[in-house]
Design a protein around this nucleic acid. Structure first.
Lengths: 216, 216
DNA sequence: ACGCCGCATCTGTTATGGCAGTTGGCCCGA
DNA sequence: TCGGGCCAACTGCCATAACAGATGCGGCGT
């Protein structure tokens, strides 16, 4: 099949399209840990050859979103407790800083948007929809951190989310009890009050909270 | 040319060899900012086809070590002041934490090794050898942080180093004055004393020091 | 019944070639 | 002398095919 269009924008090339779709799937926890993937399978699904499929996969491997076995097979990673703890610590480190930087720029429109998103989070919890929960939860955090005007730092935080994606899925389908977004409300309150120490604590707690129980 | 050996270990495949060599070059500042690269050129240099060259390049792009123009051309990045400031903040954030985690595990053999490496740093400064300076300086930091037993965090720190590589080269060839590794000695002293606040401050200062003057 | 071996199939790796967008230099005209 | 446009070489993207290690399953021997 030689009928491919060749866009000049690399963000719309075939491998990039495959990359972005796989990335969101993984980050949102739509793939279970340990799930195996094949290049030909991905190629068939996205109607491309192995080359761009391979490209997308290797990129995700480089970001830690996929695990590469010694024989070159790829699968979503099954994280150890140590790894999860470390990634949680990284989330805390990065996101506390991002929130702190976003605080002086957080005006009312942002806070209202966060409240809206938080409503969606609560609804996802209500529906016991793990994927929706992860997605809206990340949207909440990203919306706040975008205000930090620190793209490299945000990119690193997203990389951590990506690495935790499949594990988060396993976590939230294990704990089906509905936990309302308590710490999100603390975050919003601290933003309103301009309370930086409170914000740092609230973010740290929110980030640590869920993962702490997974480690045991 | 169909005479390629096909090792089972992916870390010894062709694209990985190309990747590692390019990566060290970039991290050690052997390539100037804005330097353009071509897939066919890389392939010819490493005696492989475009495919593994492309693989290695895309991986480095994913890590922020190379810049991809809108037309797909690759070059080493030319960082803005904002970006440099942000990456410096990231270094501070990550490396302070890594040092802090390494502190309780830092025994005498480690400190002696750091002192030896620091001698090499001083010698590189003496010789006005920018590449040697960057290499030994990073070796100093990595040796310390390895003790933190936090591979994901260390990997992130290395990613930041990678992004700063070409810029560091530009920095240290601009400031040719010999600056002895003052903060390194503070780091070693704090390690010996088990002084955690002092260590954090020393690492933060060391990381921030050089880059601060570049921003102006 | 159990374990082991071999083969068919699956899968990743790479070289190659065709295609299309990009670039840079050269020539022509004003 | 300068500016614009045209063309050839350059460059990246992708499909494909040949190849080799990995996998898993069925059958054979014990």
């Amino acid at each position: 099949m030689l009928t491919h269009t060749r866009p000049t924008d690399p963000s719309s090339s075939a491998h990039d399209r495959v990359y972005r779709q796989l990335r969101t799937r993984i980050m949102h926890g739509e793939i279970a840990p340990g799930q195996a993937l094949t290049l030909r399978g991905i190629g068939k699904e996205f109607d491309v050859s192995m080359t761009p499929a391979r490209e997308a996969v290797r990129r995700l491997v480089a970001e830690g979103a996929l695990f590469l076995s010694s024989s070159g097979r790829v699968s979503t990673p099954e994280l150890t407790s140590d790894r999860i703890e470390e990634l949680a610590a990284l989330r805390a480190l990065l996101e506390v800083e991002l929130a702190s930087r976003a605080l002086p720029r957080a005006h009312m429109a942002l806070i209202e948007r966060l409240q809206t998103i938080n409503g969606n989070v609560a609804q996802a919890v209500e529906n016991r929809d793990a994927v929706s929960y992860i997605r809206t939860n990340l949207e909440f955090h990203r919306t706040l951190y975008l205000r930090a005007q620190a793209p490299a730092m945000l990119a690193m935080a997203e990389t951590v989310w990506l690495q935790l994606g499949p594990t988060m899925r396993a976590l939230y389908s294990r704990f089906r009890k509905s936990e309302p977004p308590h710490f999100h409300r603390l975050i919003i309150a601290a933003l309103k009050a301009g309370d930086e120490p409170g914000l740092r604590l609230a973010v740290r707690s929110d980030v640590t909270q869920g993962l702490k129980m997974l480690v045991r």
